[in-house]
Design a protein around this nucleic acid. Structure first.
Ligand code: MN
Ligand code: MN
Ligand code: ZN
Ligand code: ZN
Lengths: 142, 142
DNA sequence: GCTTTTTGTGCAATTTTTTTGCATTAAAAG
DNA sequence: CTTTTAATGCAAAAAAATTGCACAAAAAGC
C-alpha cells in the first residue's frame, strides 16, 4: 500500500472524503517533501489544473485540524505547509538571504523541556516549532 | 539614562535619526514588552496618533535589519515583532485556541545544537526561534 | 544662527496573501 | 437509484504587507 493510499485512508478515517483533489495534494506533499506555500502548491505540477487554489487552501486547513499537516511560519510573508509523518519530527535551517530551507538531521534537543512545560503549565496537545536562521556559506560570501 | 534613551542612541549609532516616531515606538516596545503585530502597534496608545502605520512598518523593518528587533512567525496570519534586549533570549509558549503568548523562563536548550550547526554548515549570523504550541488549561477544558 | 543635504513621514494606492459566499458537483450512505 | 452531506470552482472580499511620492524634519556644513 502506497504512502498516498494510506494517507487517504487516514484522512477518510478522520472524516474527509476520498477526492481527486485530496489525492493530488497528498501526492504533492509526499513527492515534493518540503514545506511549501499555498502558491507553490497550486503551481506545482501535481496540483496545477487538478483543482482550484481555494480547494487546496481548504484541504490544507482541514489537514491541519486533523493533525496531518503542519503550518510553519518561516519568516516569509506566506505560510508554509508540510506533511506530518509518523516518527518524523523536523526542525529547519533557513537562509534568510536566499530562502533555502533544509531539515536538520541532528536529534531534536527540546523534548525534555517540552515535557517539563506540559507538566508545569498543564498545556495539552503540545508540540513545538524550532527553526535556525542565518546566512548560508554561499550567501555569507557575497 | 532610560532604556528608551539608550535604544535611541543605539539606533542613531547605526544610522537612524532620532525622531518622534522612533521614540514612541521604543516606548511602546519597552513598556508593552511582548510580541505585537503591526496593527497592535499602530493602535497602541503609545503610537496611535503619533505616527502612521506605514512609518511604524518602515521603522520595524529598519530595526530588524539593525538587529534591534526580531520578527516572529507565531502562527497568526500577521507577523509579530519584539525588541531584542542584550542578555535576553526568549522562547515562547502559545495557546492556539485563545492566542495567549507567554515567554518561557527555563533556560533555552538549543544553544549547543546551534553551535554544532554553525560548525558543520558554515552558516553565519545564526539565531533560532523556538515556540511551543498547544491548548492552555483554560482552553483545554472547553 | 542659517543653508544644504539626506533621511523620515503621511497619505493613498497597490500588491500579495488569506479567506469566504454561493451555486454546482461529487462522494458516501441508505 | 435516491437522498444526504461534504467538496469544489469561481469570483469576490478581507486582511496584511508594501510602495510611490510630495512634503517635513533631522543632521551636517558653514
Ligand atoms: Mn524540534
Ligand atoms: Mn531558544
Ligand atoms: Zn543562502
Ligand atoms: Zn488558551
Amino acid at each position: 500500500m502506497s504512502l498516498v493510499s494510506s494517507l487517504l485512508q487516514q484522512a477518510k478515517d478522520s472524516g474527509l472524503r476520498r477526492t481527486k483533489a485530496l489525492e493530488a495534494l497528498f501526492t504533492c506533499l509526499t513527492t515534493c517533501d518540503r514545506p511549501m506555500t499555498l502558491n507553490e502548491f497550486t503551481t506545482c505540477n501535481h496540483l496545477a489544473s487538478q483543482c482550484d487554489k481555494a480547494t487546496v487552501f481548504r484541504l490544507l486547513q482541514k489537514l491541519c485540524d486533523k493533525g496531518m499537516v503542519r503550518r510553519l511560519g518561516l519568516h516569509e510573508r506566506a505560510a508554509y505547509f508540510t506533511l506530518i509523518l509518523p516518527d518524523q519530527h523536523r526542525d529547519y535551517l533557513i537562509c534568510t538571504e536566499c530562502g533555502s530551507i533544509e531539515p536538520i538531521n541532528a536529534p531534536c534537543p527540546v523534548h525534555k523541556l517540552q515535557e517539563e512545560i506540559r507538566k508545569e503549565t498543564g498545556f495539552t496537545n503540545l508540540y513545538h516549532e524550532l527553526e535556525f536562521f542565518g546566512h548560508c556559506p554561499k550567501c555569507s560570501k557575497s
